[in-house]
Every structure is written in structure tokens, then in C-alpha cells.
């Protein structure tokens, strides 16, 4: 009996030690050389970035070909600065404003999504409409224009918007003939804040899109897209016509806001195509400590179309040179005319 228990204990100990020694779960990086950092960054994108297949279809992005092309530019004695330049260039191949490599030298950013398009916004011209007695409240700036159209400018969704602020703002606007929600140059922020604002424009639960995420490292390993709904707010809801103004710098959660508003029956989208950015960004890092942000979970519109490269407006308008010289905002003017006509 004595012998048996000794054996049992010994077996248990050996068994546990064997399991531990055979199956240590450790990091999978190989040093901190330029090559190791390049490999690590390439692999993070390869395994976790969510638009590789879509971008292959959209503009022929081949991430393996990117590896071949850029690995030739990596040398063991290159400086950190040169490495940062090469890696920044590599991730810009993804054409995604949500992909940023950050180091002590700066943060890489793909800017073509707005630089290659008209600006379609001028804050100095906007001030002609806001006047001097406008109201600012938690991320919203608003004014009732001379033609009795309510004008609300939302510059960011990064700061939370309170329900009380929204109630008060909509109460102020209740006698207006229509409402303009201007999200031009709004680069995004919190999705929940954007959805909270959108919830003021529907009286019923409405399907606005779908969302999925990666379930594995394969380019095509995605979960089944699940529907995203906007529930009507319990606070004051807008019951008249509204126009949302967008431009190419309407990005990320603002893109999501425009997508939601496009499904509201009384809302019209005017201005330029949005900048896109429909991938929920995650963060990671490479061995030398530089961080990388990348799109990890794709969002789609209500018809399951990709909106990574932006959403077309219902009425496409650019600010005209003539109006700019006169201090007029063509897009606001057109929105006012539209609301007056359709009130």
C-alpha cells in the first residue's frame, strides 16, 4: 500500500511536469532585428487585418507580393528611422486611414482618402452661418439659421454626448422647418456616441448594417455577420426632414453614423462621399515597441455592402469656387433649399 501511494504521487508529479515542459505557450517572435520587426508587422497584418481579401478584389492588393517587395528593402544594418519609413510605406499599401504605425519618429498615416478630393468644408465660412450667439454643448455646436433651419455641427464623436444635451438641443429646434446635421471633417470617435445621436431620428428599431470579426488568422476566417440595429431613443426624437452633410473627412465612426442615418426615412445625405473606415481598429505592437493600429472587424451597410471606402451621398454637391469667394457654403445652401422645399 505504501509503495502504491508513492508510485501514484510520483506519476502525478511526472505527468504534470511532462505536460508543462511539452506545452509551454510562449510568444512567437524572433528577436528585435530589422528583419524580425518587419516579419512581425507583416504577420500581424496578414493574420489580423480584416480587409485583405476585399482589397485584393477592390484594387489588387496582394499581401504576399507586398512581403516579397518590401523584404528586399530590409537590411540588418539599416537605421531605425529608415526601418520606420519602409514599414510605414508597407502598411500604406493597405490604403486605410485606420492603419497607423507609431514610433518615436511619428505616426504613419495614409492620407489619400481625403487629400485626393475637394475639401468641401471651411470653418471660416461656417462661422458666417453660426454667427456669434451659437450654442456649444458636449461635441455639438448649433444655431437656428436666419431661414429657420436648425443647424447642428458635430466635429467629433470622441467626447460623449449626453441625453440631456440632445433633448435640450432638439427642443430648441422644434419650431424649425428642418434640421441640418453637419458631420464634415468629423474624423470619428466612439461608435456608441454616433449611434446615440442617430437614435434621435427613428421611431422604430431599424436595421442599419452588419458586423463580423475574424475568428482565425486566415484571410477568410470571419464570423457570420450579425445585424446591427438602432433602437429609438427614449428622449426627444426629430420628426421632420433632416439633412446630414458629409465630406471625405467624415471618417470611421462618422462613416458609421452616415450609414445609420442613410436608413432613416426622413433623412437625406448631402455633400461628398464619406472617407470610409468601416473596420473597427485594434492595436498591437512589434518587438522594438512600435505600435500598430489596424482594422480588425468589418462593418457593412444594411445590404451587406462594404463601406470601407466610403458612402455615396443621396445628393452629391461640392462647394463651388464662386460661393467660397462670396463666403457661402454651397452644401449648407443646398441643404436649406432642399429642406424648405420638402418641409
Amino acid at each position: 500500500m505504501k509503495h502504491k501511494n508513492y508510485s501514484l504521487f510520483a506519476i502525478l508529479l511526472c505527468f504534470s511536469l511532462a505536460i508543462m515542459s511539452l506545452s509551454c505557450i510562449r510568444e512567437d517572435v524572433s528577436g528585435n532585428t530589422p528583419q524580425a520587426n518587419f516579419e512581425s508587422l507583416w504577420r500581424i497584418i496578414d493574420e489580423q487585418y480584416c480587409f485583405l481579401d476585399y482589397k485584393n478584389e477592390a484594387y489588387g492588393l496582394d499581401w504576399n507580393e507586398v512581403y516579397s517587395r518590401y523584404s528586399k528593402r530590409i537590411t540588418s544594418n539599416m537605421s531605425d528611422y529608415n526601418l520606420f519609413e519602409v514599414l510605414s510605406e508597407m502598411v500604406n499599401e493597405l490604403r486605410d486611414g485606420h492603419v497607423n504605425l507609431s514610433s518615436g519618429y511619428g505616426t504613419s498615416q495614409y492620407r489619400e482618402w481625403f487629400d485626393a478630393y475637394p475639401r468641401n468644408f471651411s470653418d471660416s465660412i461656417q462661422s458666417n452661418y453660426l454667427g456669434k450667439d451659437y450654442v456649444i454643448t458636449s461635441g455639438l455646436t448649433y444655431q437656428i439659421l436666419e431661414n429657420n433651419i436648425g443647424y447642428v455641427y458635430c466635429s467629433s464623436f470622441s467626447d460623449g454626448i449626453g441625453d440631456g444635451n440632445l433633448d435640450y438641443m432638439l427642443k430648441e429646434m422644434e419650431l424649425c422647418d428642418g434640421l441640418i446635421i453637419d458631420v464634415r471633417n468629423n474624423g470619428g470617435g466612439n461608435l456608441t456616441t454616433a449611434q446615440k445621436l442617430a437614435a434621435r431620428f427613428t421611431n422604430e428599431k431599424i436595421l442599419v448594417g452588419y458586423m463580423s470579426h475574424k475568428i482565425g488568422p486566415g484571410h477568410n476566417d470571419f464570423s457570420t455577420p450579425e445585424p446591427v440595429y438602432i433602437e429609438p431613443s427614449n428622449g426627444i426624437r426629430w420628426q421632420k426632414k433632416a439633412v446630414v452633410l458629409a465630406n471625405r473627412r467624415s471618417y470611421s465612426s462618422t462613416n458609421d453614423f452616415v450609414n445609420s442615418m442613410k436608413n432613416m426615412p426622413l433623412v437625406t445625405i448631402m455633400g461628398d462621399k464619406t472617407g470610409g473606415g468601416s473596420g473597427l481598429p485594434f492595436s498591437s505592437e512589434i518587438p522594438n515597441g512600435w505600435s500598430i493600429r489596424f482594422s480588425a472587424a468589418p462593418m457593412y451597410d444594411a445590404e451587406m455592402n462594404q463601406i470601407e471606402f466610403g458612402i455615396e451621398p443621396d445628393v452629391r454637391i461640392d462647394m463651388s469656387e464662386e460661393d467660397i469667394l462670396r463666403g457661402k457654403d454651397t452644401i449648407i445652401e443646398e441643404a436649406c433649399t432642399f429642406l424648405k422645399k420638402n418641409q
Binding site: 489580423q48 480584416c50 461608435l191 456608441t192 458586423m211 470579426h213 475574424k214 475568428i215 482565425g216 488568422p217 476566417d221 464570423s223 450579425e226 446591427v228 473597427l280 485594434f282 480588425a296 472587424a297
Partner: peptide, 18 residues
């Protein structure tokens, strides 16, 4: 959470998964 699943999806949108 699943491989690339955010807590926003789990808790704000109520989307499940394994």
C-alpha cells in the same frame, strides 16, 4: 472573446460567438 472580436460587439451590440 473570439480571435478578433471586440468587447463592443459582445456587450454593446450583444453579438455572441464561441
Amino acid at each position: 472573446p473570439e480571435y478578433g472580436q471586440s468587447y463592443y460587439e459582445i456587450f454593446s451590440l450583444g453579438h455572441g460567438g464561441k
